[in-house]
């Protein structure tokens, strides 16, 4: 684990540390996740590589994890998606080996047909 603070890096690095993150994302069938539209801790998630046999499920492949920036306030998670009324997606995160307290995050279609999310998620 690498700790980065403004005091010790001297190069304008943001406060926080890099931690391994894994996820499981499930969606209802009409939901489309926008290309390049999923980031965790400022790391772009490769959706095409993470798609499971079920086309509506995405997950970090076994033995793999994303090295994400965990800030003091939490892990920045952004996801942009589109869908129809009644659609939803759910996201379960494991930050540094521990399930996030907010699991599962669930987002439903808004009035414009979007299922967008951009928030800091606290780790245990």
């Amino acid at each position: 684990m690498r700790t980065i603070t403004p005091e010790n890096n001297g190069t304008g690095k943001p406060p926080g540390m890099t931690v391994p993150v894994t996820y499981k994302l499930k969606k209802s069938p009409f939901v489309s996740l926008l290309d390049n539209g999923f980031s965790m801790g400022y790391v772009n998630i490769d959706l095409a590589a993470d798609q499971d046999a079920d086309p509506n499920s995405f997950s970090t492949k076994p033995g793999k994890s994303y090295s994400c920036l965990l800030q003091d306030q939490g892990l920045q998670v952004t996801l942009y998606a589109e869908g129809k009324a009644g659609d939803f997606w759910t996201l379960e995160l494991e930050i540094d080996g521990k399930a996030a307290p907010l699991n599962p995050i669930r987002v439903e279609t808004d009035a414009q047909g979007h299922l967008d999310f951009n928030q800091l998620i606290r780790a245990l």
């Binding site: 943001p14 290309d35 390049n36 772009n44 920036l69």
Partner: peptide
């Protein structure tokens, strides 16, 4: 979204700016 991806993939990332 493509611009965000490119910034996040750049070598000196992450930095405050």
């Amino acid at each position: 979204l493509k611009r965000i991806r490119d910034i996040q993939a750049s070598e000196d990332f992450p930095n405050e700016a």
